[in-house]
Design a binder for these strands. Structure first.
Lengths: 216, 216
DNA sequence: CACAGGATGTTAACGGCGTCAACTTCAGCC
DNA sequence: GGCTGAAGTTGACGCCGTTAACATCCTGTG
């Protein structure tokens, strides 16, 4: 097996697993997790439905792969916007602004890629739902690089005296919860029909509020 | 038509709509929105699948009804736990504790009734996803009685000088986002496998944090 | 270099789901 | 007391996920 084998009529696809994931990601992007349909992905790759079973244990497994892609995309988008941000001189101010930027990046991705975002956090049958205790750094999981950056930023808040040490525990959970919940309220929930400008204002106020709860 | 017509072998059910919703609610309670299956609800009521179409436009419509029930159950559970709470003398302290209790009640319901909670906030095809701007009080919607109580509590925070008026706008969104996001991270997300005691500690810290961001 | 065997894809089929069309039963009203 | 329309039934269609049995290719070993 290998990459592409010329333009022959090849019976064997060559890289079917990735092709299927790609097609499924496209489906997820336009319709969320419930749109990642095994037969449709196979069809769009030009292969028979059952061929997928050579590479995935079933639809749930394919969905799981797409979910991982969604998480990676979220992380990539966040780190990208973070790196684009101008760095401030005052380390305390830098940490605060950085925390706000992380939250904004999260919500921005959710709004710009609703299908992928919802897939990244969809329920995925029985296999442990993303294992990782929530309090230890998962360095081997690239999709949570952004999570590590959040942790570091919170540490910086403590180090610069912006955040009291006794507030540090579970601070990432509080921050994450807020932006995650807001994203979902905007995507599926009661904030869905809010016009963009009002929505953005609400996002800003919410980020300000949670950061205010963390610092001091 | 009417309520129950004795114990005869009745061809007509009498109250099929509610019976179907009841069965579907049970399904949702044990498996979330993806478990509310029209045929299964009909089967468990002892009626043919297509009978449901006399009372619902389709599966999505049935799910919509179940969703409303889930929202009502959430609201009822919250107001109940709120009313059970002892009232404090100091109005400022009362408002703060009340806000915390609202958050706790929300998350508690999510943990105790995961299927219903997820159904209450599941995506519901095209019909407007819960319309209500998020900033005006929807008194005619019983499922959001709890939301009104949140609003009132936030007003009380301002009135007692615990919260600065300029922080008031969108405060309910910030509060709601945090508890909503935390609930979902606990149900489906990375916090799912956290042992109950650690989980409760995280919940308390998170509630403390967001309330801290709101007051002062 | 042949060829055996595993990896990869295919066709055929099953059961379950949502949904439509056409038929049947019942309950109430002139 | 028949008629009419609401409420429920049977039957069928298409789509989905999944399994079993078969076909094709690729690769490594003698």
């Amino acid at each position: 097996m290998g990459a592409i084998t010329g333009g022959k009529s090849r019976y064997h696809h060559g890289d079917l697993r990735n092709a299927l994931i790609g097609a499924a990601v496209e489906l997820a992007a336009e319709g969320g997790p419930e749109r990642v349909i095994l037969r449709e992905a196979a069809r769009s790759v030009g292969v028979s439905p059952t061929a997928a079973y050579r590479h995935f244990s079933g639809q749930g497994d394919l969905l799981h792969a797409v979910k991982a892609r969604g998480q990676q995309a979220l992380a990539a988008s966040m780190t990208e916007t973070l790196h684009a941000r101008p760095r401030l001189d005052d380390p305390g101010e830098e940490a605060v602004r950085r925390a706000e930027a992380i939250g904004r990046g999260y919500i921005r991705f959710a709004i710009e890629h609703p299908g992928l975002f919802r897939t990244a956090f969809c329920r995925t049958t029985p296999e442990e739902p993303d294992a990782f205790t929530g309090l230890e750094a998962p360095d081997d999981r690239p999709e949570f690089a952004a999570f590590v950056e959040l942790s570091d930023t919170l540490d910086a808040l403590v180090a610069t005296g912006r955040m009291r040490p006794e507030n540090r525990p579970a601070a990432e959970v509080a921050a994450w919860s807020t932006v995650h919940g807001l994203s979902l309220l905007i995507l599926d929930g009661p904030l869905a029909r809010l016009p963009a400008d009002q929505r953005d204002a609400v996002v800003e106020r919410t980020i300000t509020t949670i950061v205010a709860g963390l610092v001091r």
